[in-house]
Design a protein around this nucleic acid. Structure first.
Lengths: 103, 103
DNA sequence: TCGATATTTCGACGATGATCGAAAACATTA
DNA sequence: TAATGTTTTCGATCATCGTCGAAATATCGA
């Protein structure tokens, strides 16, 4: 398979990161990833088609928020929690906290 | 003058708030508001025209991030720091911290 | 009231984005 | 290799967004 590109932490852009999180569906996705410990694959509970979900996961990956790894015939998505915390301290935890209390 | 609408804290939407912050120019604006203690009016240092700046301020206001008050012939813009902190704890401080260290 | 200053609104334009279904690509197993 | 299940890509559509200049609105001072 074609290797997936994950931006280095140092090259992350704050506006890009925030933009990736500024969508209801993507907030659901990161919320579910956070709740499931980042182990969920394609079993997200989102109100969009599979192709649209794939698009959102790509946005999150290219923004540096999630890491995608092949696992058999599926793909595992996990939050890059520690890395983003290193670059933008506090942002992801506070958003995840609000996501979980709101959704 | 027509009274400016400011959404109540309880009616804020997380995706809307994040979307309002997910723009380079608007990040500059909130960064300057934070640095100036939220007292700056139309004297922002941004690389866009006056009408575009006005548009960005409207987006921030309608998202609930800033409060705009008339002050003579000018308008004062200030961050709704405490209110947003009450609704979404940690988000704005962490973003402001990253904005100031990046910009 | 008139003029100057500050800000917003009004089109308009080009770019980006969310969405879908269908088709293609990939990985596993028979 | 063929069949199956999972995910992505493609092409298209419709909506939203950032930007500008010009015109309109609002406020203050002479």
């Amino acid at each position: 398979m074609r290797s997936l590109h994950h931006p280095d932490v140092a090259s992350l852009d704050l506006a890009t990161v925030l933009n990736a999180l500024a969508d209801p569906v993507r907030l659901q996705i990161v919320g579910q990833l956070s709740a499931a410990g980042g182990v969920v694959c394609g079993g997200f509970d989102v109100p969009v088609s599979m192709s649209t979900l794939s698009h959102h996961l790509k946005v999150l990956r290219e923004a540096g928020i999630i890491r995608v790894t092949q696992e058999g015939s599926r793909r595992r998505n996990e939050l890059r929690l520690a890395e983003i915390e290193d670059r933008y301290p506090g942002i992801l935890p506070s958003i995840l906290g609000s996501v979980r209390s709101t959704a």
